[in-house]
Design a protein around this nucleic acid. Structure first.
Length: 602
RNA sequence: GCGCCUGUAGCUCAGUCGGAUAGAGCAUCGGCCUUCUAAGCCGAUGGUCGGAGGUUCGAAUCCUCUCAGGCGCGCCA
């Protein structure tokens, strides 16, 4: 990550300013209030601490940098005057080094102000650290992130974008935090669609079309097969027969299936390459086939699953869950994706020793995952299960994002369009570059804009895809962040060109003279806490918002605080270069966690 | 019919398991390039937090009801 001889040394606070402060607050609270008090007081402090509620950044700079709100609710438990309790807290609070003397305000808030000289020294040190002072988490988890998961024989389209981009960002961020992460592409490479595909293939495929556009031909066959099957019961039976042969290991069907999977994967890989997305494994549904029969029998034997109307079902009578059963074997004996998902959990727990299982899948499948997780719990498979459900991608008109004629938007064409739309701007801003260089920048800015738009919003809701908004260089967009990073690099380039100054941070404390520098420093110090929060909540927009705020503060600093001008003294210049260096590497690290491409100029 | 999710400024969205005067961006209006990329910066205007009750020192946040929109509901994934 560091290209200039920086070394890894953990900062005094492990890069978690908020966490360090919070710990001091916790100690002071127990010290001030828990002695001889009701056990609820201690429990309340622990609860607030666990929820990260002991401190929070102030809502207003006049209140300092962090505020302690937790004394007010405690006052109720202690039946005391909040301000008097705050006074007791302030007396025992250890502000040594980190903070100035705490202040009591309002009905019983305590305002904490960071000691500027401590912050300046801390950041000076962080600038020389390869991880910006952010130590890996103390307790790494084994995490599986299940994401992207396209179906074989179908082209990658915008419906796959969100899972792919969000999952990838989660994987990279959790890895940076020090967790043992496996990003798994759980491709849809098994199931009833292959019966249809095999039948349609045998009825008549076009070898020339297959060579020219493999996925196009498979999609055509699938579409025709589905239509034929719906129109004719005999054909539906024939499709089922083909599927049965495949499942029984028929050599011809198996070979065809392998061919379908191979061409589909090749197609998907081309799109992943453009998105720069990678996986640690590609364990599709077929990977778990062998486990299915035994699993169903085991669950029947355990009494977890029972037969109903010929199907093997799991009934989960719990509030919040659908009343319909979780079906793991159809009445015709075939298995379903519920079965595969259970077998997948079993494998991930037993073989991969997963502690946390993350599924990045469309929110419309939340019922399925609620049932899946409840079933696992019922079986006794203990783990931290999370469904990261995201909303649909809508057009600017608020209706599902489609092509003009109502078709699905192909992912490769979406990326083409992003590049085409941004290319004129690149040509205008950098006319002396070669066509190839301009195209490369345009592809990175275009893909980055599309990906960032997907990550920047809370994923619970549908999001509106609007070319003008996401490609804009102002506002919370990919291009804005890439531009901020480019400006950092430009400063170092010009320092070398004009002054012959090759800058490297040396660990000396910053000089935080102006409001812009102070605000920037405080934000930089919050990077580690932000990563933790994103890792805990699995919400990429938390990191996006942070990076945007940082980039904005940097832009204000850039406008107000000259660095290379001749009237700037050496010490100030060095400090501002260090700040710029920190911003550069924070943006670099943050964008790389989100996997938004970085460029050196634009 | 049952269940889940969403409703915050003209538009797009934040709001960290209740906390101080609800925040950004876009758009609009007004400023800023003889120093590092103006794809930028600064300022101003703009909100009954869908509505009504309730809980309490204190509610966008918790509870109840209600309106509006989206999604899902036995052998597809």
């Amino acid at each position: 990550m560091a290209s200039d001889g920086t070394k890894t040394t953990e900062g005094a606070i492990g890069g978690r300013l908020g966490e360090a402060l919070s710990e001091r607050v916790r100690v002071a609270m127990l010290d001030a209030f828990a002695q001889g008090a009701a056990p609820e007081v201690e429990a309340a402090v622990h609860a607030a601490n666990a929820g990260g509620q002991l401190i929070k950044p102030t809502s207003d700079a006049r209140f300092g940098d962090y505020q302690v709100n937790a004394i007010l609710p405690l006052a109720k438990l202690l039946k005391g005057n909040p301000r008097a309790l705050a006074q007791r807290f302030v007396e025992v609070f250890d502000s040594r080094g980190m903070c100035l003397a705490p202040e009591i305000a309002g009905p019983g808030f305590v305002n904490l102000r960071l000691d500027p000289s401590w912050l300046a020294a801390e950041l000076g040190r962080a600038a020389t650290d390869a991880r910006l002072g952010v130590a890996p988490v103390a307790q790494p988890q084994r995490v599986i992130v299940d994401f992207s998961s396209p179906n074989v024989a179908k082209r990658m389209h915008v419906g796959h974008l969100r899972s792919t981009v969000i999952g990838d960002a989660l994987v990279r961020t959790l890895k940076f935090l020090g967790h043992a992460v496996v990003g798994d592409n759980h491709i849809g490479d098994w199931g009833t669609q292959f019966g249809i595909l095999l039948w349609a293939w045998k009825r008549g495929h076009d070898e020339a079309a297959l060579n020219a556009d493999p996925i196009g031909e498979l999609e055509r066959l699938y579409k025709e097969g589905t239509a034929a099957m719906k129109a004719d019961v005999e054909i539906a039976n024939a499709c089922r027969a083909e599927l049965a042969k495949l499942q029984a290991g028929d050599a011809e069907n198996k070979a065809l299936w392998e061919r379908f999977v191979a061409v589909s994967r090749a197609e998907a890989e081309r799109v992943y390459a453009r998105l720069e997305v990678t996986f640690d494994s590609w364990h599709g549904e077929s990977f778990y086939n062998d486990r299915l029969p035994g699993l169903v029998e085991e669950l029947r034997a355990k009494g977890v699953a029972t037969e109903s109307e010929g199907a093997i079902c799991i009934f989960l009578d719990e509030p919040g869950l659908p009343t319909t059963p979780f079906i793991i074997r159809k009445s015709d004996g075939a298995f379903l994706y519920a079965t595969t998902d259970l077998a997948t959990v079993e494998y991930r727990r037993e073989t991969l020793h997963a502690e946390r299982l993350v599924y990045v899948v469309d929110v419309r499948q939340s019922d399925h995952f609620r049932q899946l997780f409840a079933t696992c719990k019922k079986i006794g498979w203990d783990a931290d299960f999370v469904h990261v459900g995201f909303g649909m991608m809508l057009g600017a008109d608020g209706r599902p994002f489609k092509t003009r004629d109502g078709g699905v938007v192909r992912l490769d064409q979406l990326l083409d369009e992003a590049e085409e739309r941004i290319l004129p701007v690149v040509r205008e801003k950098w006319p002396e570059a070669t066509e190839a260089a301009q195209r490369l920048i345009a592809s990175k800015v275009g893909a980055g804009a599309v990906k960032y738009a997907d990550l920047a919003q809370n994923l619970a809701t549908d999001y509106k895809f609007d070319w003008d908004k996401l490609l804009a260089a102002d506002g919370n967009t990919g291009p804005y962040l890439q531009y901020a990073l480019v400006r950092c690099l430009s400063i170092f380039r010009e320092a070398e060109n004009r002054l012959g100054l090759v800058f490297a941070p040396d660990g000396t404390a910053l000089l935080l003279g102006t409001d812009e520098e102070k605000a920037l420093a405080l934000e930089l110090a919050r990077f580690g806490d932000t990563l933790d929060r994103m890792g805990a909540q699995l919400l990429p927009h938390i990191l996006c918002e942070y990076l945007f705020a940082l980039a904005r503060l940097f832009s204000a600093f850039y406008a107000k605080c000259p660095i290379l001008a001749s009237n700037i003294d050496a010490a100030t210049r060095h400090s501002r270069l260090t700040l710029t260096h920190l911003v550069w590497r924070t943006l670099e690290t943050g964008l790389s966690c989100l996997n938004i491409p970085r460029v050196t100029r634009m």
